[in-house]
Amino acid sequence: MGMPNRKYADGEVVMGRWPGSVLYYEVQVTSYDDASHLYTVKYKDGTELALKESDIRLQS
């Protein structure tokens, strides 16, 4: 078993793309699913969504 190939840690605050949009919002990573390679993130309004790594970026 190798290390999970994840870029962002639980609790890390990053920018997540809103689905169907080009806009990124501040989100907190809450979990990562090794099987689906999706991150569960929480937006400031409390919305929780699963995002692909390509829809997440570090805060500038």
Rank of each mutant, 00 (worst) to 15 (best):
M1Q: 14
M1I: 13
M1A: 15
G2N: 10
G2V: 12
M3D: 13
M3S: 15
P4L: 08
P4M: 07
N5F: 10
N5E: 13
N5M: 10
R6F: 03
K7E: 05
K7Q: 09
Y8K: 00
Y8M: 00
Y8S: 00
Y8L: 02
A9G: 09
A9Y: 10
A9T: 08
A9M: 12
D10L: 08
G11I: 02
E12L: 08
E12Q: 15
E12N: 04
E12D: 12
E12S: 09
E12I: 06
V13W: 15
V14L: 06
V14M: 02
V14Y: 03
M15Y: 12
M15D: 05
G16K: 01
G16N: 01
G16Y: 07
R17L: 09
R17C: 04
R17Y: 03
W18D: 03
G20A: 05
G20D: 08
S21F: 03
S21A: 06
V22M: 13
V22Y: 12
V22Q: 14
L23Q: 12
L23I: 14
Y24Q: 02
Y24H: 04
V27I: 05
V27M: 14
Q28I: 15
Q28K: 12
Q28A: 07
V29G: 00
V29R: 00
T30V: 15
S31K: 09
S31E: 06
S31V: 03
Y32F: 09
Y32H: 02
Y32L: 01
D33H: 05
D33N: 10
D33L: 05
D33P: 01
D34H: 11
D34L: 09
D34W: 12
A35R: 12
S36V: 07
H37P: 01
H37S: 12
H37E: 15
L38C: 07
L38T: 13
L38F: 10
L38V: 09
Y39G: 00
Y39P: 00
T40P: 00
T40S: 08
T40H: 12
V41C: 10
K44S: 10
D45K: 02
D45T: 04
G46R: 04
G46S: 06
T47A: 06
E48V: 14
E48T: 14
L49W: 15
L49H: 12
A50F: 15
A50K: 15
A50R: 15
A50C: 14
K52R: 13
K52L: 12
E53F: 06
E53H: 06
S54V: 10
S54M: 08
D55W: 04
D55L: 03
I56K: 00
I56R: 00
I56V: 04
R57V: 11
R57L: 11
L58W: 08
L58I: 13
Q59K: 15
Q59F: 14
S60G: 13
S60V: 13
S60L: 13
S60Q: 12
